[in-house]
């Protein structure tokens, strides 16, 4: 065995959940507390590094500048000034293609917080909920609606149809705005703004969603990710990304182990044996499915075509405690 194969085996046998837990902590620290260390990754991050987290944040969620740009008066939006927007998109895109939706599965602070809430639930021994097939299909549209509104409302402001109080409409209902600053001991987002009707409604809506976020994330794994317009935006570009989730249909037994562990209940991961690129619009690329696949090579994560994490029998047996001899 060469060194490379040794490394590959070690990676494939990794206790994935533990690895992911620490990686998530790393990203969380980077994005939520990075400001302390003077880290500034810019305002084009394809993940919820919330801008409301003031000075602490190590970078900013792209949705914030994006909505802001969309609010420009139209004569400006459709002028040479739009080059700023294109430039912004380009930076966003460069960030994005590196990790694809791994940004959601590993880096997103809101996602990480949801995973922590899930751990809390697991600790209390309460079972999780799943959507029925019908609910899944119906609710799956929401993220696209949110994405559309996120563009249309600011455009409407720029066009003069909506009040400026509606600005950054998605930020107003995003649980990231209320939850992430809490980690900087900032509770200022937890208030209702009575200064105008719009403000009152939007801030109330924001806290309503926050409430739902906590309940949802408690009973449903990765509750918010299913509705996240950032995820929908990601999906539009995912085909160009370097990090990929690939499936070899011929090796798949459709045992459904991957579907079993999928936080977002993606059935295609188990059932689709035609497509090599298996990522759906809901996929957060947490790669739990790869870790839970017992068929060697059936699922793999590749970076620029090079497999970096692959399903193996030995890895599965290790992770699922199959070889345990300590019973009785």
């Amino acid at each position: 065995m060469t060194n490379l194969e040794h490394i590959r085996t070690a990676v494939n046998n990794v206790q994935f959940n533990r690895f992911r837990f620490w990686l998530q902590i790393f990203f969380f620290a980077l994005l939520v507390y990075g400001g302390y260390l003077g880290i500034e990754l810019g305002k084009h991050l394809p993940t919820f590094a919330c801008g409301y987290n003031k000075e602490l944040r190590g970078g900013m969620c792209f949705l914030m500048p994006l909505q802001h740009w969309m609010e420009w008066p139209w004569e400006k939006l459709f002028s040479a000034a739009a080059l700023t927007i294109l430039y912004g998109f380009a930076i966003f895109f460069l960030w994005f293609i590196a990790l694809n939706r791994g940004w959601c599965g590993f880096a997103c602070p809101v996602g990480t917080i949801q995973d922590w809430i899930t751990s809390l639930r697991r600790w209390t021994g309460i079972r999780y909920s799943r959507y029925s097939e019908g609910q899944y299909k119906g609710l799956g549209i929401i993220k696209w609606v949110l994405l559309a509104l996120m563009f249309l409302i600011p455009l409407g402001i720029g066009g003069g149809w909506f009040t400026h109080d509606l600005k950054s409409p998605f930020c107003m209902i995003c649980p990231g705005r209320t939850v992430v600053p809490l980690f900087g001991l900032d509770v200022s987002q937890w208030s209702i703004d009575f200064s105008s009707r719009t403000n009152m409604i939007m801030t109330s809506l924001g806290l309503l969603v926050t409430g739902l976020f906590f309940i949802g994330a408690f009973v449903k794994k990765r509750f918010f990710c299913f509705y996240c317009p950032m995820g929908a935006l990601h999906y539009l570009f995912s085909k160009a990304a370097l990090l990929r989730l690939n499936k070899e249909g011929a090796k798949c037994t459709r045992c459904g182990d991957c579907y079993r562990v999928c936080d977002l209940q993606i059935k295609e991961i188990a059932d689709d044996i035609q497509n090599k690129n298996i990522m759906t619009d809901d996929c957060i690329m947490c790669l739990k499915c790869v870790a839970a696949c017992p068929e060697p090579g059936a699922l793999k994560a590749t970076f620029a075509g090079i497999p970096i994490f692959e399903a193996t029998e030995a890895g599965f047996i290790k992770r699922m405690n199959k070889g345990r001899t300590d019973d009785k």
């Binding site: 697991r122 021994g125 079972r127 999780y128 037994t253 459709r254 045992c255 459904g256 182990d257 991957c258 579907y259 079993r260 562990v261 188990a270 739990k288 839970a292 696949c293 017992p294 599965f316 047996i317 699922m320 199959k322």
Partner: peptide, 25 residues
């Protein structure tokens, strides 16, 4: 041959996983 994967080692999830293992593959 086919093995069970469990995400949360709780009775509820284990039983459902078990069911999946006996049907899906």
């Amino acid at each position: 041959y086919d093995m069970t994967a469990v995400d949360e080692w709780m009775v509820n999830d284990m039983v459902d996983s078990l069911a999946d293992k006996y049907l899906k593959p």
